[in-house]
Design a protein around this nucleic acid. Structure first.
Lengths: 225, 225
DNA sequence: GCAAAAGTGTTTGAGGTACACCCATGC
DNA sequence: GCATGGGTGTACCTCAAACACTTTTGC
């Protein structure tokens, strides 16, 4: 072994055709107690007219997280400042998933709270319940499923859940969001005990009235150092 | 919204320069009670002469897992049949990590048992202890660190550990491998109780003698359905 | 005063951690 | 017979799950 010969450029990378790389984003929110995902109706082939995840090809001089943000900024008119984005997986096994060109897709998932969505007038996204998706282009149904599985596993080890719910919330609303997310009912007392250990919630000293019963206190999440 | 206009091809993807995509592999093994990683000394710029992870550019008609396998098959003369490979992350933020061309790198980590390594005569890998790495090219030191962290978290939820150790092992050898991997000492009785619940080990009805004391039973892992 | 959701503690069981002694072998 | 690592069981403690009643409001 060892490196003895002087360097001679080979630059094999310039000698063969390169695949394209794209970023697709699984943007999730909890809307009316349903876990929903933002889809757009495609204006181009392939899968013209079908719904699909918002995506964008990575430009030569564009960091991939920028690509991810632009994929949703351009299409949904949503400010990405308030969106939590995390890389999920890179799908690159299927050589013909895009008929135009061999494409490798890096998928990000993101969370947006439903209040932020509604305040955007010029929204080209269509939101679908994740358990009742329309026929989708590409392999996007599979991708959405694995995003949700992954996110469920990570949910209680991080504080990402607070990106999915409004800034101000009652404990019952928060519990319902968690139940929606995990797909199972939770015990009220155990739930409150648990979040009291895990997170620091600020009591806003205000209440929310939703019917002929005792009003609920409003809280907000305070990020710990 | 809605899709009314007849389809007119845009094919923006053909109008701009595409980044290259490469696969790098963090190939790990436990050799003489040390967690070690396979590196190669680079024969090309950039980082000519430095050690780096084995890598390969993704060809246009090559699934990325094939790229990952070829990255280690070509360089280490190792059969990939016995190697567990899993995708870690795609690094695409740094626009100048490779000076030749904008490169996005998908990293896989893999496990190989030390017996398989030693039986390969024409091995161009150099194995380094992960806690004592040489200066590395690219951002590969950071990548190796995050591979190990990820793998530690996943270790006891899967059976990947058995790809890191020889097919036949004594319980003490297995325990030492786990201790090496987690970087902490384990209690012998608790360890045996735990693996007895988690895995099905086949008693090979043979023993291994390593000194003037009671010989240890040999086991092998039996994959469950 | 009654319906309806908010709010609040205790008991129990399972699983993880800590810990000490006998066994089989070579010399 | 003694030095060396192989092999085994029990007590305690921590954390998660199960569970019921009082409080505040609108009507």
């Amino acid at each position: 072994m060892g490196v003895k010969a002087p360097y001679q450029p080979k630059d094999e990378i310039f000698t063969f055709l390169r695949p394209a790389i794209a970023v697709d984003v699984v943007l999730l929110s909890i809307i009316r107690n349903n876990l929903q995902v933002a889809l757009i109706q495609r204006q181009d082939e392939p899968y013209y007219g079908k719904f699909a995840l918002p995506g964008r090809f990575v430009r030569y001089d564009e960091p991939i997280e920028t690509t991810a943000k632009k994929a949703i900024e351009g299409k949904g008119n949503i400010k990405t400042d308030n969106i939590y984005l995390e890389q999920l997986h890179t799908f690159g096994q299927d050589l013909v998933r895009d008929t135009r060109i061999r494409t490798i897709s890096t998928v990000y998932y993101g969370f947006i709270d439903p209040d932020t969505i509604n305040s955007q007038p010029d929204n080209t996204f269509t939101w679908f319940k994740t358990d009742n998706l329309p026929p989708l282009g590409f392999d996007h149904k599979k991708i959405i499923k694995s995003s949700i599985e992954r996110v469920r596993r990570r949910m209680f080890t991080t504080d990402v859940i607070f990106n999915l719910i409004p800034k101000e919330f009652t404990l019952t609303e928060f519990q319902h969001a968690c139940e929606t997310f995990f797909g199972e009912e939770l015990d009220k007392r155990n739930f409150r005990k648990k979040i009291n250990e895990l997170y620091t919630l600020k009591d806003l000293k205000r209440t929310k009235m939703t019917g002929a019963h005792r009003p609920a206190k409003l809280y907000t999440y305070v990020k710990m150092k």
